[in-house]
Write a protein that binds this DNA or RNA. Structure first.
Length: 191
DNA sequence: GGGACGATTGAA
DNA sequence: TCAATCGTCCCA
């Protein structure tokens, strides 16, 4: 049985929350009553006003203001005029940080993820502890992971564009399934 | 008010 | 390699 993550989970430094989100379950309840669930497999950390890759480096604006609020809120924005990016705000009030969720087991890119989960601008500021249409659950999985520089932020300069703040579940699905099997006490059969 | 530009994706 | 597509942000 998995349990919904509460606000205090998110009110920590983004470099702790980001890797901790790997293996968690993103849950979306649709208007028709059905729901979509998938394991989070890829995330990126954006950390404060010093981080030139972070939207908050330009100061507080209409678009990014929710990042300056407390953790556990949803930060979504439109990119390239057609894709919504789904982020989770972390840390405490006044410390702008967020985790970009780039992939789950059923969608391998941030734009494809929001399209599949039907997440749009109406989710701006949504509270993940209280919302009845989107939240994240802990299933007890702690998959191993690797890191790389963040994607698509060359403009952030040689340092910030190379910081290894992209976190990926090792071996992606295979690792998740193996971890889940272990949690359930099931022997994983490998070829 | 005008123009440049994306934390992307999919097709050529 | 490149177009799609539009809200936000910066400058005037």
């Amino acid at each position: 049985m998995s349990k919904r993550l509460s606000t205090d989970f998110y009110c920590r430094d983004v470099l702790e929350v980001a890797p901790d989100l790997l293996g968690k379950i993103l849950v979306r309840c649709l208007p028709d009553g059905s729901s979509i669930r998938a394991y989070i497999t890829e995330v990126e950390a954006y950390r404060g006003t010093d981080d030139l890759g972070c939207h908050a480096s330009k100061g507080k604006t209409k678009r990014n203001k929710v990042m300056f609020d407390h953790g556990g809120l949803v930060y979504v924005y439109l990119i390239y005029g057609m894709y919504w990016m789904f982020n989770v705000v972390t840390s405490v009030y006044g410390d702008p940080q967020a985790v970009l969720v780039r992939g789950v087991t059923s969608a391998n890119g941030p734009g494809k993820l929001t399209r599949l989960f039907q997440i749009d601008g109406s989710f701006y500021g949504e509270n993940l502890e209280a919302s009845s249409r989107i939240w994240i659950e802990d299933n007890g999985l702690k998959p191993s992971y690797t890191t790389t520089p963040r994607i698509g932020i060359d403009y952030a300069g040689p340092y910030w564009s190379m910081v290894p703040w992209r976190f990926l579940v090792a071996a992606s699905e295979a690792s998740l399934h193996e971890n889940e099997a272990l949690r359930n006490g099931v022997v994983a059969h490998k070829k």
